[in-house]
Design a protein around this nucleic acid. Structure first.
Lengths: 216, 216
DNA sequence: GAATTTCGTAACTGGTCAGTTACTTCTCCG
DNA sequence: CGGAGAAGTAACTGACCAGTTACGAAATTC
């Protein structure tokens, strides 16, 4: 037995500070999203990350620092995905439809993002307000919407005098709210709103609302 | 001095279990809304209520029991306010406009309700699901919307084939989301969305979206 | 007005948890 | 190699907190 190196799984055991860092952030995202800031347990995050408490405090200072980093990272990810959107070649109506679908499905496949935002709003966005990165994350979706609106108005397929920020908020609301409140809504309506079928119904309706509104 | 009765403020000091109960619930609403379930402190609730811990455990069993009661009470209040709505004499368009305004302003003036619902959704509505009262609280707003839709369709001022549940969800979303995410949105947009001016802009836009969609 | 029940107070208990520390083990680099 | 420093471990600390208890004070009832 010259070099057993490690008893653990056969992952290579070289130094990878950035991998460890990422593992911690991944674990923290899950834990924070499931239990909120005060409900989350640092020990649990350490265990789940495969790393340990000491590293968490080494990299992130304290629980709050970890929270802020997780939050910023979640926004960054969303921004990255949004950047990949290209509706320049689509017709305004087509583009708007695509945009709403993207937003809706993003919410559907990122429930942790929803939970994180809700928790941050509970704290009156006090962490986000102190973030240095926050100014960069003005969402690109807004730019795309503005462009679509202008083209649609020029072509006469959209009504005039639509404020892009308001429309953006409306689109965000139509996606976000459904998933944010999906458990209480499911309980009250006695339906499982998480089912793909119900999700499709909801998305179709949302698109119909916005496109119906945008008619000249 | 025949009967000084109490050294405290001149509130009467007779036995009033229901008043004490209500005071506790009021205090709990504030604390829970501000800090969530796990963040809230029972000691703080006891202090704020003017009563004490012992009474809390006497009336509500434990922290979770208190949470559920607070939640049910919040829903009941909403239902009561909704019951007072009477749009029977309004035109469909007028009625719909009034309904959206009511919903929006209810969210505006009940931020604790918003916070409570978000916290409950974080817990996957596990408390609400176990509530015996839950079946009663199918919101009356839904009935009113159904009626308005039918009348509007008969009169030819609303489009056909609108699902009342979907429209209800949309209206709820347009009010709820804005206030639920008001802190992160304010931070990202760099505006104070809590200001009455911004609120009016938002409400007007929301109404325009729904009425615009409903056009035949 | 005594007995009984309700209400209030404050100290206590047992457990939890964020953050620290002392110490060991591994990895990297010259 | 071998030394320096990074990564890992686990025990520890001190604060906090949900829930309990023991006891006293007040109020209702008969």
């Amino acid at each position: 037995m010259p070099k057993p190196k490690t008893d653990k799984s056969d992952t290579k055991r070289t130094r990878q500070p950035d991998v460890t860092r990422r593992n911690i952030l991944d674990a923290a995202l899950v834990e924070f999203a499931a239990k909120g800031l005060s409900g989350a347990r640092v020990d649990e995050i350490a265990a789940r990350s495969g790393s340990n408490k000491r590293m968490i405090y080494e990299y992130f200072g304290n629980k709050d620092g970890l929270w802020l980093t997780v939050l910023e990272r979640a926004y960054e990810r969303m921004r990255e995905e949004e950047h990949a959107i290209d509706v320049a070649r689509m017709s305004p109506v087509e583009g708007m439809r695509y945009l709403m679908e993207f937003n809706f499905k993003f919410c559907s496949r990122n429930p942790e993002f929803i939970a994180l935002l809700n928790a941050e709003n509970l704290h009156k966005a006090s962490f986000l307000k102190n973030s240095k990165k926050i100014r960069e994350l003005y969402t690109p979706l807004l730019v795309v919407i503005t462009d679509l609106l202008q083209r649609g108005q020029r072509e006469g397929v959209f009504r005039k005098n639509v404020d892009p920020v308001e429309l953006y908020t409306t689109i965000a609301a139509l996606g976000f709210f459904y998933f944010s409140n999906i458990h209480t809504l499911s309980t009250i309506f006695g339906r499982n709103l998480l089912s793909p079928k119900q999700q499709k119904v909801r998305l179709d309706h949302s698109i119909a609302v916005v496109l119906g509104y945008l008619r000249p």
